[in-house]
Design a binder for these strands. Structure first.
Lengths: 245, 245
DNA sequence: TTGACGGGTGTACGGCGTACACCTATGGTG
DNA sequence: CACCATAGGTGTACGCCGTACACCCGTCAA
């Protein structure tokens, strides 16, 4: 009987349970309130108990990242490389948008958990299967870089105003505030552009998903062009500075 | 006399001096050892003295970012948009590489210091002067995103092995370790590709600068194509899923 | 002469990650 | 059945962090 009471009172803790709780906590309360102490409390346990299952907080973060990366859909084998890579990347983006803390966490880590390496590896595999030379595949992976592979945030978002100056308005989320608009006229002009679907004109900012796919397709189309013409880094068409103008 | 002793003993502290010292400290010792206490000590002052010049640590970081962004070269007016943007972005990259902590700091901030906004604004100005519609300029800025505008690190770097598993070798910097290579064969294959200049073949990893410019030019070329054909988001050629395969 | 004030000081608080010693229930072995 | 090793949860404590708050002192305007 006392045994039952105990087993009911708490499931016995484990690396999995800790990681899931940590991800949930970060999702709900933000990464900045993910402390060993808070996490332990959520699990109904004393902080030091966690250290029997994860070595330290960094290892905890690595584990959390692997959880998120594990949510990326596996590749679908039938399609051509472009479709396949495109789908995979959009899936990665979806996974990361479910866990807004993840991009920064990934970038701040020293590097590459096994799950991330596995993801990257499988993307390379798709390229190679699609006829890419190792050389081109190499550069393509670099070009996709952090942002396009699904990691990393959007930097360009003029609707978030500068940190300094008056703390007047509490939260007017759309369109950048008049003061900023005045100082940065080109940003102001830009920020109301982009009438995506019909022409709603002065919009609520812009469609992140559209922008992401715009950049993604810009790269994919360029890459396709290179691949079709058998690009190789040894006979490259660089040194832009003389063949232009 | 005692006045002279004092004025000699320390220059009187100021926001500028604090910011410069903070940047120097972060450059030398890493951002993780930039604490108010360490910084104060470097300045020969008690920690709380700093708060007479910066509101708190976040504002200090904002100031540091502005210092770095301020190092980006101003635009040169004569050239065409493509040259101009290209040069500007490479200058931004140079500035950020002098301060390796900066990209992460920039991305982790809520958003956009005045200096960053000014930088973005001037890039937009160049595009507009080059004949870009506000619409296209908008999307282009998004496409450049964090990575290409000079911010954000390189994510893809297989030579840094996974965190877990044995902590055996102290620092073998080049080429990914056999164990990892075995588990991720495509990454292994890729990592030794990219014979950049002549054909040194199995290299020491790869040329970051080359990879950066590869991605940059991929985007710039694609953007140029769009601009020449008068691209607009209303008559876009999206919905990839049906015109392919 | 005075008194306001800008700027450096000292103390203290609450939160963090985590080292280390401890306790206790469990389960394999004699 | 008795034993004790061990896995896993506990409690205390240390040193770091950011920073609130009271203080104090030199300078300068009135």
């Amino acid at each position: 009987m006392p045994e039952q009471v105990q087993t009911l009172r708490r499931t016995p803790l484990s690396r999995e349970r800790i990681l899931r709780a940590a991800v949930a906590l970060a999702d709900e309360a933000g990464i900045e309130s993910l402390s060993m102490r808070n996490l332990a409390q959520d699990l109904g346990v004393v902080p030091m108990a966690l250290y029997k299952h994860v070595a330290n907080k960094d290892e905890l973060l690595d584990g959390m990242i692997d959880v998120v990366v594990g949510e990326i859909d596996p590749p679908v084998p039938g399609t051509d490389w472009k479709q396949s890579v495109r789908r995979r990347i959009l899936s990665a983006r979806r996974a990361l948008r479910r866990h807004p803390w993840a991009p920064l966490a990934i970038e701040s880590r020293t590097m590459a958990t096994p799950a991330i390496l596995a993801y990257l590896d499988s993307v390379v595999a798709t390229l190679r299967a699609g006829g890419f030379s190792t050389d081109l595949a190499h550069h393509v992976m670099h070009a996709m870089g952090s942002r396009i592979l699904g990691f990393s945030q959007e930097l360009f978002d003029p609707s978030r105003q500068a940190g300094r100056s008056g703390a007047t308005n509490p939260d007017p989320p759309a369109a950048l505030p008049a003061e900023v608009a005045a100082r940065f006229p080109h940003l102001a002009e830009i920020s109301t552009a982009a009438s995506h679907d019909g022409d709603t004109v002065v919009g609520q900012g812009c469609d992140d998903q559209f922008e992401f796919e715009f950049a993604l397709d810009l790269l994919l189309d360029g890459i396709e062009r290179l691949q079709r013409q058998g690009w190789s880094s040894s006979r490259r068409s660089h040194r832009k500075d003389q063949d232009e103008a």
